[in-house]
Design a protein around this nucleic acid. Structure first.
Lengths: 201, 201
DNA sequence: CGACGTTTTCAATCGTTTCTGAAACTTTCG
DNA sequence: CGAAAGTTTCAGAAACGATTGAAAACGTCG
């Protein structure tokens, strides 16, 4: 096995992860930077990233900053070195929790707020009554909004129980649900289990 | 209340939903079309959509097709009318299940497959041994890949239990978890007040 | 069967987002 | 304090995905 096969695998991982990122509305480069930090597992500095990913300094800097904001990458200082190094969160579940937390905060919460506003916009104000004609439509309209709101409220709850300090809760629940769903066996143990997913229909 | 206030609310909903879509990697227009169908609740034809959303015929057609593929919009035929009409799935949970199913199929499953390949790429082949130098790095590299794979496997399980015919399972679980989440003193509650959805019961 | 209304496709265009590179800024150290 | 090293910002350039509009395909009806 050639000694640089790890590097090749890393490159491939970076590409794959970057692609996934862009499918989920995250800038490709940001995902790539994260991928690189995650897969190498060790702290890298801006120049390392620039060189390895062939991107500009500005881009590298911005992406790093964003990852820091997301809380899935942390600064590392080395004694006797003025450079800053960066290291990715190593625990996949912690990483995912951070992502969920941020996306809820940035996208779902504002969305909920807007939906409430829209709901209020046609909500009956005190002492005012909708015209007879509009009544049914309005009711149905508001019912649909409410259903959406209810849904997002539930989602909020789920996400909180996942994200919270005691958030391992969902990790456990996920496993239980996993069993229900597909009989997916996953237990502790670093052994290379390449268990195939069994469809349960 | 002016009779067109529903229309105004609909427009606003369309805008909000479209924005959300693009934040999650769905084309804005497609999300808008869906929003329109959902919020009006009744079947619309291509021309209705073109006019209301001010988009081209081609765009409307493509977006409709995509929504059909996602399984969150269905064709409706009207007797004595050659046009095709389209109607959005009305049940929020069913809609969300369809979305999860599709995104898993299109994005997560391929990702998993790729990760397996990458894993195999450096996996020890029979009778071959990694050079001593690379040993530790390789082990750590593969461990990180495995963790990711394990995670996605669990995710797959959760999603299956959600998506499957008996998928109401997660709906119930979600509510339970939601309660837990609400009860748990979670970190500085972002903006989770205003939880006054009217209960029908 | 040919004409008409409707839907689909696709190359060209347009608009948005991302990326670059250089300048401005900040921090550290002699 | 000033120089050196590092980081951030930002206007313009490039890349990418979305959108259009016209033409082809489809299916129906007289």
């Amino acid at each position: 096995m050639p000694p640089n096969s790890i590097k090749a695998a890393q490159d491939r991982f970076v590409a794959v992860w970057g692609q996934m990122g862009s499918a989920w509305g995250i800038s490709r480069t940001m995902a790539e930077v994260h991928a690189l930090l995650y897969i190498t597992g060790e702290p890298l500095c801006t120049d390392d990233i620039m060189e390895r990913l062939q991107i500009s300094r500005g881009n590298a800097s911005m992406s790093m900053r964003a990852l820091l904001d997301w809380g899935i990458v942390e600064r590392v200082h080395r004694r006797g070195d003025r450079k800053e190094y960066f290291k990715a969160e190593g625990d996949v579940w912690a990483m995912f929790r951070a992502i969920v937390r941020e996306r809820m905060k940035r996208e779902v919460d504002p969305l909920r707020a807007q939906l409430y506003e829209i709901r209020d916009q046609t909500g009956e104000r005190a002492g005012e009554r909708a015209p007879r004609d509009q009544g049914a439509d309005l009711l149905a309209h508001n019912r649909r909004l409410d259903e959406l709101l209810r849904f997002f409220q539930t989602l909020e709850g789920v996400s909180n129980s996942f994200v919270s300090p005691a958030g391992r809760g969902l990790q456990a629940a996920a496993k239980i649900l996993g069993y229900i769903g597909g009989g997916v066996g996953n237990s502790a143990g670093p052994s290379t289990e390449a268990t195939d997913t069994k469809e349960a229909g």
